[in-house]
Simulated scan of single mutants.
Amino acid sequence: MFQNKICIVTGAAQGIGKAVVERFYSQGAEMVYALDMNDKALMEAYSHIERVVPVTINICDRAAIAELVASIQAQFGRVDVLVNNAGVTRDALIDKMTEADWDLVIDVNLKGVFNVTQAVAPLMMENNYGSIVTMSSVVGTDGNIGQSNYAATKGGVIAMSKSWAKEFARKGAQVRSNCVAPGFIETPMTADLPEKVLNMMKEKTPLGRMGTTEDIANGVEFLASDKSSFITGQVLKIDGGLVL
């Protein structure tokens, strides 16, 4: 499905990002660039795998991102798929949220997505082809107590993605931009939650379980592939019915 495709996945060291990298690889991608700040986890996951290039990088570092994309362009002349997955949480009620925690989440989850997309999109438009999939959340569509910073970023990436769907194709380029909005997913980010919280969220989910990283990778695979070639500017919720 991804034969001859050059792919970039951010936040690729673990969880959803790792599942997406592995999916692209298993579906025959020519090369997958796996980006993350966690050098140790990246090397453990990918150093032995051909056609996957682990890149230790901070998506808030605009110069480093631009340099990476320029090197990919020099080698392959294109980027076919971008998955903006990197993100962080710093949860707190509004009266207890620090400015530092607000700024960090905004910088990584919103500006970081902007940085990477700004570097990649012109190359896609030049080549008249590309699919951008950005990870949002049901928190970005419906909000959540104690996550005003996270919700702002995840709602923000939806707004950016819809704008990009119009902007990148305005001159006829087949460059698409969509979002995936996961619900409650089994990842390292949720692994440390108390058992009662996990059970409560399962009870709130009509399908009665947490989602898996493979569930999310299924949706990303579809939106990144040519099977969704007439879909752009959309938000695909993968949440087991949590938000209806």
Results as ranks from 00 to 15, higher is better:
Gly155Cys: 09
Ala169Asn: 03
Gly156Tyr: 03
Thr134Ser: 09
Lys162Arg: 13
Glu195Leu: 15
Gly155Phe: 06
Val139Tyr: 08
Phe168Gly: 00
Ala191Ile: 04
Val138His: 03
Ala151Glu: 12
Ile185Met: 12
Phe184His: 09
Met201Leu: 13
Met200Leu: 13
Glu195Thr: 11
Ala181Asn: 05
Trp164Arg: 01
Asn128Ala: 15
Ser137Tyr: 11
Gly155Pro: 09
Ser161Glu: 08
Lys171Asn: 12
Gly172Cys: 15
Met125Leu: 04
Glu126Cys: 07
Tyr129Ala: 11
Val180Leu: 12
Leu198Phe: 06
Asp142Asn: 12
Ile145Val: 15
Phe168His: 03
Thr153Trp: 10
Thr187Ile: 04
Glu126Ile: 10
Asn144Ala: 14
Ala169Asp: 02
Gly156Asn: 12
Asn199Gly: 10
Ala165Pro: 01
Leu207Phe: 11
Ser161Tyr: 03
Pro194Trp: 08
Ala119Asn: 05
Ala169Phe: 00
Met200Ser: 13
Gln174Leu: 07
Pro122Asn: 14
Asn149Ser: 15
Gly143Met: 14
Leu123Cys: 05
Val157His: 10
Ala151Phe: 08
Ala119Arg: 03
Glu203Arg: 12
Lys166Arg: 10
Glu126His: 10
Val175Arg: 01
Gly143Leu: 05
Tyr129Phe: 14
Gly208Arg: 09
Gly143Trp: 11
Lys162Gly: 01
Ser161Met: 14
Gly130Phe: 00
Ala121Met: 06
Val175Cys: 00
Arg170Asp: 01
Ala151Asn: 15
Gly156Ser: 11
Gln118Asp: 01
Thr190Ala: 06
Lys196Ala: 12
Gln118His: 08
Ala151Met: 14
Ala181Ser: 14
Glu126Leu: 08
Phe184Cys: 11
Asp142His: 14
Ile185His: 03
Val138Thr: 15
Leu198Thr: 14
Ala173Cys: 13
Lys166Pro: 00
Gly143Asn: 11
Val180Pro: 02
Ala121Trp: 00
Met200Ile: 08
Lys204Gln: 09
Asn127Ser: 04
Gly155Arg: 09
Thr187Met: 09
Glu195Met: 14
Glu186Val: 08
Asn127Phe: 02
Ala119Met: 02
Pro194Cys: 05
Lys162Leu: 04
Ser161Thr: 15
Phe168Asp: 01
Val197Ala: 09
Pro122Leu: 05
Ser163Val: 01
Ala121Thr: 06
Ala181Leu: 12
Pro206Asp: 12
Ala173Glu: 08
Glu195Arg: 13
Ala121Asn: 02
Ser148Gly: 13
Tyr150Ser: 04
Gly140Thr: 07
Trp164Leu: 13
Thr190Arg: 11
Met125Val: 08
Met200Val: 06
Ala169His: 01
Gly156Pro: 02
Asp192Pro: 01
Cys179Phe: 02
Glu167Arg: 00
